[in-house]
Nucleic acid binder design. Structure first.
Length: 745
DNA sequence: GGCTCGATCTTTTTT
DNA sequence: AGATCGAGCC
């Protein structure tokens, strides 16, 4: 038995040590999935001698990617970790396309359009076609287009397949035009990043061959949430070596709405008949009480799935609490009061607690309650930093400097700050450019030639030319100036602060100005890159950051987060609020059976985030659209056996809080009652080593690196990290992996 | 071309 | 309840 088995349980070991070829790891919540992934990578490097440069790992968020790199840095050293390719589907595709999109006849300096940009572009399409935006909301057109793209259905095919209704036909026409405009702007939307990469690999086998050589080992996290495009992408990349290691849990599939297809994970064994399948069923995260309730919820599901049975050796723990409040404000105050009590007891810190909800709108009541109780908090999502108008406006300048054909950004700043170019002129410019058959920026350039016939009067022409020359001026410096200084220059040239003060009252202007200062500060962190790489990198990362990516794990604050974003996270104490019909399950999902099942899984995901204490809350009345509506408890709650729940007695207004013990004295995790009955059917992992096996000065031998001298050794994460000086350089190794042999000097 | 006021809509979930 | 958007006025 290899030594590193110590730190892992048998199933985890089996996964980490699996031979080459396809591997499917079905990992229940809290079963050490991340640990398996990182150890697998470390194992490939240390034991199989795989060059980290040849490893590609796909994670679900940038945050997960960063954490994986950090953990691997400790396992295999900074240099090896740096050589790894780790990222989300979208960021990896962006990287591939930056390199190779020329093969598709496009330029490398494309910009990435997010939802807001997409809507602006779609509005332009609708206006061009004289279609009523009210009756045909850009969002719903885009939603259709997005699902088409996720299925890799292009405009032509879409038109062929969908001709049963006038709306279908409208979508088809808009889709076509939308793609033309995207291309003209040299822009890709989120979905295009995937679609175009698949197309690139499909149409250019030589390019794909390059990536086959480059990436000999593939790892994919959250495989149950891949959509068709992502699935095909992985299939393309894995086609040659079939060295594909995927991890996922069909019970946690919650992204149906953005095209995720659970069949991808359910059919893995058909796709790769030689696949090894490994189940991770031991849960290390939650108490038995929490797990029992989560299981009750998921087992009531009717869907076909991979069968798993979770168990834990953690003690029974505190009962799960069910709380009914009169309305959303009372619900939020209950949560806040419980938090105050728990934190005051010293058992948990604010950073260990999270409040989770179905919709972002629910965060408002929560936020108010937390403020009233003076609790520190961070909200994930809500009004996002990069969605603030002024921030986007400055970003629009940057994007135009990077890619002047970006028409959405160009029109965004055409009249910001106000320079006498109104909607009428904008419209005129757009249609004139269309007549000339050139991008907007090109049309502006045409104005410089006074002999060209234009639809503008002298005053308007002057304003447009001044704008063009402002861009020229900024552009001439943007390539040779750090991106933070470019932002400063933009702000200076447009007198951003004064502009804001003109547009808003003093307080709000200051707040918005601070946002711009913050944007500059973010840009500052790119200064270590070569100057010419700063702007592109900055723009790309800004486009692809998710809200969870910005969660600060070090801040001692309560986290408020949607159930979707909470996937993959864990907290000692979790409050699930708004467990009501219409909210969870959401009314928009109530009609469809599959969607209803997804709502159930969403609840399951939320519950299994909790380590020690879980609260389930609902209100009998809720304010919607400024109107009170009575709410019934979620149907899912009736799937929980009553005996597993503990209600909290209503407090009389002035009475002190009852001193119920939420945690056993030394905390639920500290003193573990043995788990009951048949659940202890697996051998547990061996206890971690308690003192270091290696010490400074000792001579050791490594199978690949040869002999060396131990510089230091310390216990980390249940294992021993040994720093060894080899001939060429120092390396940090994990004792359980490195198979270091002790040599007598 | 820009402002003010009232009508209208909003809430799924996200890269 | 709050934001956003368009019509009508300056």
């Amino acid at each position: 038995m290899s030594k590193f088995l110590q730190a892992l349980n048998p199933a985890q070991c089996q996964a980490v040590e699996a031979a080459d070829g396809p591997v499917l790891v079905l990992a229940g919540p809290g079963s050490g999935k991340t640990r398996v992934l990182t150890h697998r990578v470390a194992y490939l490097i240390e034991q199989r001698g795989v060059d980290p440069f040849n490893i590609l790992a796909v994670t679900f968020t940038n945050k997960a990617a960063r954490e994986m790199k950090d953990r691997l840095e400790a396992l295999v050293g900074a240099q090896a970790a740096y050589a790894l390719s780790v990222g989300t589907f979208h960021s990896l595709c962006a990287r591939f396309l930056r390199r190779d999109i020329v093969h598709l006849g496009r330029e490398r300096n494309f910009v990435i359009y997010d939802g807001d940009d997409q809507q602006r572009l779609m509005r332009r399409v609708l206006r061009e076609m004289n279609v009523d935006e009210k009756r045909n909301p850009p969002r719903s057109l885009l939603a259709r287009i997005s699902s088409a793209k996720n299925e890799l259905v292009g405009p032509a095919e879409y038109a062929r397949l969908n001709r049963s209704s006038p709306f279908d036909e409208l979508v088809a026409t808009c889709y076509q035009r939308y793609q033309v405009l995207l291309r003209e702007a040299n822009a890709l939307d989120f979905d295009d990043l995937l679609v175009e990469t698949v197309r690139l690999f499909d149409e250019h086998p030589d390019v794909l061959a390059h990536y086959h050589t480059r990436f000999t080992a593939l790892l994919v996290d959250e495989y149950q949430d891949t959509n068709r495009a992502q699935y095909l992408l992985i299939r393309q990349l894995a086609a040659q070596q079939r060295n594909l290691f995927v991890v996922g849990d069909d019970d946690q599939s919650i992204y149906l709405f953005r095209g995720a297809d659970v069949r991808n994970i359910l059919q893995f064994e058909q796709d790769y008949p030689e696949a090894q399948v490994i189940l991770l069923e031991q849960n290390y995260r939650s108490t038995q009480s929490i797990l029992d309730i989560a299981q009750a919820i998921i087992q009531a599901s009717q869907k076909p799935k991979h069968l798993k049975r979770l168990w834990t050796e953690n003690g029974g723990g505190a009962h799960v609490t069910l709380h009914k409040a009169v309305d959303q404000d009372a619900e939020a105050l209950f949560v806040a009061d419980e938090l105050v009590r728990l934190i005051a007891s010293g058992d948990v810190a604010a950073r260990d607690c999270a409040i989770m909800y179905r919709t972002n709108a629910q965060s408002r009541a929560v936020e108010e309650a937390l403020i009233r109780r003076a609790l520190p908090y961070q909200i994930v999502g809500g009004t996002r930093f990069y969605e603030r108008k002024e921030v986007r406006d400055i970003l629009a300048y940057l994007r135009v400097l990077y890619n002047p054909y970006d028409s959405v950004s160009l029109t965004r700043i055409l009249n910001w700050p106000g320079r006498g170019i109104g909607q009428r002129t904008e419209q005129e410019l757009i249609s004139w450019a269309a007549t000339l058959g050139v991008p907007l920026f090109q049309a502006l350039r045409e104005l410089e030639d006074a002999t060209t016939a234009t639809p503008f009067n002298a005053r308007t022409t002057k304003a447009l030319l001044e704008f063009l020359h402002l861009l020229d001026h900024l552009r001439s410096t943007s390539q040779t100036t750090p991106v933070a200084s470019v932002i400063e220059q933009i702000c200076e040239c447009i007198a951003a602060r004064a502009t804001l003060e003109r547009e808003y009252d003093l307080l709000e202007a200051e707040e918005r100005w601070q946002n711009l200062v913050e944007l500059r500060d973010v840009a500052e962190s790119y200064k270590h890159l070569p100057t010419e790489a700063q702007l592109p990198t900055f723009l790309e990362e800004v486009a692809l950051v998710a809200e969870v990516d910005k969660l600060d794990p070090n801040a001692d604050k309560v986290t408020c987060i949607t159930l979707h974003q909470a996937k993959g996270l864990e907290y000692a104490v979790v409050f699930l609020i708004g467990l009501e019909e219409g909210l969870l399950p959401h009314s928009r999902s109530a009609q469809d059976r599959d969607q209803l099942e997804e709502e159930r899984r969403l609840l399951y995901v939320g519950m299994t985030r909790a380590q020690r204490k879980l609260y389930l809350c609902h209100a009998s009345e809720r304010m919607n659209y400024g109107r009170f509506n009575s709410s019934r408890p979620s149907r899912f709650l009736s799937d929980i056996p009553k005996a597993l729940l503990k209600g909290v007695p209503q407090r009389s207004p002035k009475a002190p809080a009852p001193q119920t013990t939420m945690f056993s004295p030394r905390s639920a995790l500290g003193d573990q009652k043995p788990a009951t009955g048949s659940r202890t059917r697996r051998p547990s992992a061996a206890p971690p080593p308690e003192e270091t096996r290696f010490s400074r000065g000792q001579q050791v031998r490594h199978a690949i690196f040869g002999s060396g001298t131990v510089i230091a050794s310390r216990l980390v994460d249940g294992d021993e990290e040994v720093t060894v000086r080899f001939n060429d350089r120092e390396r940090r190794l994990l004792a359980s992996f490195a198979n270091l042999e002790q040599v007598d000097a």
